[in-house]
């Protein structure tokens, strides 16, 4: 990034960080019940919790911008249960996009925390150098990887035919290993994006500014999403406290800043081409 771009971004980020206080607060009351049931987006207990509406805006600060936004708002409910914070994100999306071919992208959402717990010292736009943010990121394609098996060439291109892959035991993802991975450098290098054996549809990211997002090796968070009647409902859950120094530590009875992002696969949202929300106050229930 050039000096000029940096200067422009930090000026804007400072201004936006100050504005954070104005947004309506999200309440996360403390409730009983096990994590497994709260992880179900359709669990009726969610309906009894207060709902907040968060305004979503097109990302137009860092290059590349999102030109044609499709989401204006996001409904958020939150709960604290058994040492976990669960966030239920619901938004209207006319198409379910999870298959990834060369020209398609996946739907996705994310919640962001300031690692310091202080929203005035870091930017909701991927943090600032030395002032990291932690992001819990869910993708529709990861959900499908777990529910239906790794989404692969044969799913994007069902009639595709290829004789064989050199040194592989077969054509399925799990039959391609060892020396055969020389033709799959992303997998060979353990790029987290190339993981074929995902356990959770979420990952944790730490970032200190645009372009610096890095997947955390240690995953504490969980998640689950469902798509019904043109709506995605996704639960993101993370322990209040974690052993990870690059995670935010959440204390019951405090207010912390939280921000969100949404991606629409159908209109080719990815990376910085996304919808974002500013810092909002999250009231963490309990003592």
């Amino acid at each position: 990034m050039t000096t000029y771009q940096c200067a422009k971004i930090s000026a804007l980020a400072g201004w936006l960080a100050l504005r954070a206080v104005a947004a309506p607060a999200i309440e996360a009351p403390q409730k009983s019940g096990d994590l497994k049931s709260w992880l179900q987006p359709g669990n009726a207990a969610w309906q009894s919790l207060p709902e907040s509406t968060v305004t979503m805006l097109p990302q137009n600060i860092a290059i590349p911008n999102l030109k044609n936004p499709v989401f204006q708002k996001l409904q958020v409910r939150a709960v604290v249960t058994n040492g976990w914070l669960c966030l239920r994100l619901e938004w209207e999306d006319k198409t379910r996009d999870a298959e990834v071919t060369r020209a398609m992208f996946t739907d996705a959402c994310a919640a962001e925390f300031a690692v310091s717990g202080n929203g005035t010292d870091t930017s909701p736009f991927m943090g600032n150098p030395g002032k990291p943010v932690e992001i819990v990121h869910w993708k529709a394609i990861w959900q499908d990887d777990i529910e239906k098996g790794y989404r692969d060439v044969e799913h994007g291109y069902p009639n595709h035919y290829y004789d064989y892959y050199p040194l592989a035991k077969g054509k399925k993802a799990d039959q391609i290993s060892g020396p055969a991975l020389m033709y799959n450098p992303g997998r060979y290098l353990n790029n987290p994006i190339s993981q074929t054996q995902r356990k959770e549809p979420v990952e944790e990211i730490v970032a200190e500014g645009f372009g610096s997002a890095t997947s955390q090796k240690h995953l504490d968070s969980r998640g689950w999403g469902t798509y019904q009647q043109n709506h995605w409902t996704v639960v993101l859950a993370r322990p209040l406290s974690t052993p990870d120094p690059t995670d935010a530590q959440l204390k019951p009875g405090t207010n912390i800043p939280i921000a969100f992002a949404l991606w629409d696969g159908a209109t080719r949202n990815r990376g910085g081409r996304k919808h974002y929300a500013m810092w909002t106050d999250l009231k963490i229930g309990g003592k």
Partner: peptide, 23 residues
């Protein structure tokens, strides 16, 4: 992370997306 902005940006269309590794 497979955003494909390089595929979009290269006028010669020399980067290619790999749907297996997603890079």
């Amino acid at each position: 992370r497979g955003y494909r902005d390089c595929v979009k940006g290269c006028p010669y269309k020399r980067p290619f997306y790999n749907p297996h590794t997603r890079t």
